[in-house]
């Protein structure tokens, strides 16, 4: 039954391009979907292990730049006489490289900062994002710096000589984003409902107790960072081949903040939280844009977030589930288990 419901939801989402009839709306859904993937990846760290990655956009940007560079090819003048030439590679391969490199950076960050957690992780992740941004800005030979990498190829799937599909249009990009959303969602769900995810939650809730029953702290924190970074890298790769241009602004702090807002308002540590938060804060700016200047938009954003955090401190999804459970359990709960309502608080 549940499975049936899930498949129906995905099929419904997949049908949107057929009846939406407005390419601009579809564009909003694509960028929102990309942000949802990034928010889901952040939630794996922030929500389940409790570590705040305030440089999360670095992984997104590394995925973007790697995927763009591998698909475009590049040459580096290493010495006077020797130039390293990297031939352009197929987009799918470039995309995978982006994921792998982002995941490796995640591993690196995890290794150095998880010996000392909490605030140190926040600082290390912020600094890392800033360093990567400066590299993208100044290593002009490789990244073109502020001139941006242009003419990035769209996604292409090909069986050589037989068949080729290039994703110039919005519809296939939408389906690609939807597909990756589903894959990331399923992976995260499998993880958090398993031994590995429980270990992460155990660390978040009570680290001394978790270690006393044999949970290897560093191992699970690093695993979470690797997966989280890899998913953010995948979102970055999708973004690059969709908008087909990438510049150092992709590393702006505001994107990390947006992801954090999505996770926190939606409900951190819940599966649906980043999806709900991502939908709200992905679509809202576009709605507001129609009738509010950018400054006013930011103010509305801010007020909305303060309201949500103030009235629903755990986020929208936990608030709704608790309300739903209380309602469902209402009449019989009072007879059989007297203390049951207290459990929800």
């Amino acid at each position: 039954m549940n499975r049936f419901l899930e498949v129906s939801v995905v099929l419904f989402l997949a049908s949107i391009p057929f009846w939406l009839g407005n390419l601009y709306y579809l564009h909003i859904l694509i960028t929102t979907g990309i942000f949802i993937i990034a928010a889901m990846s952040l939630n794996l760290l922030l929500g389940y292990t409790g570590q705040l990655s305030l440089g999360h956009v670095a992984f997104f940007g590394i995925g973007s730049y790697t995927s763009a560079l591998v698909s475009l090819g590049f040459d580096l003048e290493l010495t006077e006489s020797y130039t390293f030439v990297f031939e352009p590679k197929p987009v799918w391969f470039a995309f995978l490289c982006g994921i792998v490199l982002a995941a490796i950076s995640g591993w690196l960050i995890g290794r150095i900062s998880f010996k000392v957690r909490g605030a140190y992780f926040v600082i290390v992740s912020i600094s890392f994002a800033e360093v990567v941004r400066l590299v993208s800005l100044n290593w002009i030979d490789l990244t073109e710096g502020p001139m941006a990498l242009n003419n990035i190829q769209p996604f292409t799937f090909a069986i050589p000589g037989l068949w080729e599909l290039t994703f110039f249009k919005k519809e296939p990009n939408y389906w690609l984003v939807l597909g990756l959303c589903v894959v990331c969602f399923v992976i995260i769900r499998r993880l958090v409902q398993s031994r590995a995810g429980r270990a992460m939650i155990a660390l978040r809730e009570n680290e001394p107790l978790a270690t006393s029953i044999g949970v290897d702290v560093t191992k699970y924190l690093v695993l979470a960072t690797i997966l989280s970074a890899g998913m953010a890298g995948a979102a970055g790769g999708l973004y690059t081949h969709y908008v087909r241009i990438v510049d150092p602004d992709i590393f702006l702090f505001i994107y990390t903040v947006t992801m954090v807002i999505m996770v926190v308002t939606g409900g951190k540590g819940t599966l649906a939280g980043p999806v709900v938060g991502g939908l709200i804060f992905g679509i809202l700016p576009e709605v507001l844009r129609a009738f509010a200047s950018p400054e006013v938009q930011w103010i509305i954003y801010g007020i909305l977030m303060i309201l949500i955090v103030y009235f629903l401190p755990e986020g929208i999804v936990p608030a709704v589930t608790q309300w739903w459970q209380r309602r469902a359990r209402g009449p019989e709960g009072s007879m059989s288990q007297g203390s049951a309502p207290g459990a929800a608080s």
């Binding site: 992976i187 499998r190 993880l191 398993s194 031994r195 590995a196 429980r198 270990a199 939650i201 155990a202 809730e205 009570n206 001394p208 107790l209 978790a210 029953i213 044999g214 949970v215 695993l223 997966l227």
Partner: peptide, 29 residues
């Protein structure tokens, strides 16, 4: 006193079973 306060009693014990489980992250993914 030291329990996983935000988890049900059942989930507390599930967490305690960590050591008895053998499936690795890749199997899970």
């Amino acid at each position: 006193t030291s329990v996983f306060g935000g988890q049900s009693a059942f989930d507390n014990v599930l967490m305690g079973l960590h050591r008895r489980q053998t499936r690795k992250a890749l199997h899970i993914i």
